[in-house]
């Protein structure tokens, strides 16, 4: 008499069950965010790019010269979101903005929690509002707020 056949079973997780390294440039920026610091990188023309790029956008030269920067900056252009979408990180009206971090030349995009559209203007000064817990993600910057 043969025993009843054993049914083979194994738990299965649908998803990417691996981790990736973000590399020497992106990784350095994200790791600095975890420590509540912002770093930029010098482009071929010496201009400071934030967030840092691995290769120069014009010359394609590999970049490596990092620059420590403050967590304050200036709004270069902005757009007011009256009706935040479900995926957006802020659940009340906010601004998207290109923010030139002080000491840098190439602006970065992030959110500004200004409360009201009338508080927004091109050229206004802003500073980082850090997330309560930082993890090495771009969202470690919860948003910027008027400085």
């Amino acid at each position: 008499m043969s025993a009843q056949a054993e049914v083979l079973q194994q738990a299965f997780t649908l998803g990417f069950t691996y981790t990736r390294t973000t590399g020497l440039v992106v990784g350095r920026f994200l790791t600095a965010l975890r420590d509540r610091k912002i770093v930029g990188i010098k482009g071929s023309d010496g201009k400071v790019i934030v967030p840092p790029m691995e290769y120069d956008p014009v010359t394609a030269e590999a970049l490596s010269e990092f620059v420590d920067l403050p967590d304050t900056g200036v709004v270069k252009t902005w757009a007011w979101v009256k009706h935040p979408r479900g995926k957006h990180h802020l659940d009340k009206p906010f601004a998207w903005a290109q923010i030139q971090i002080d000491g840098s030349d190439i602006p970065m995009i992030h959110m500004v929690d200004a409360g009201d559209e009338s508080k927004m203007s091109t050229g206004m000064k802003v500073k980082v509002r850090w997330a309560e817990e930082t993890k090495g993600f771009i969202t470690d910057i919860a948003c910027f707020e008027p400085a």
Binding site: T22, V26, L30, P51, T77, W78, A79, W80, V81, R85, K87, H88, H89, W96, A97, Q98, M108, I109, H110, M111, F137, I138, T139
Partner: peptide, 17 residues
């Protein structure tokens, strides 16, 4: 790494422009 996690939508980026 820098933008997709923020869910910057196409209408918002056009508005910045």
């Amino acid at each position: 790494y820098y933008l997709a996690p923020l869910w910057l939508d196409t209408v918002s980026s056009a508005a910045l422009q």
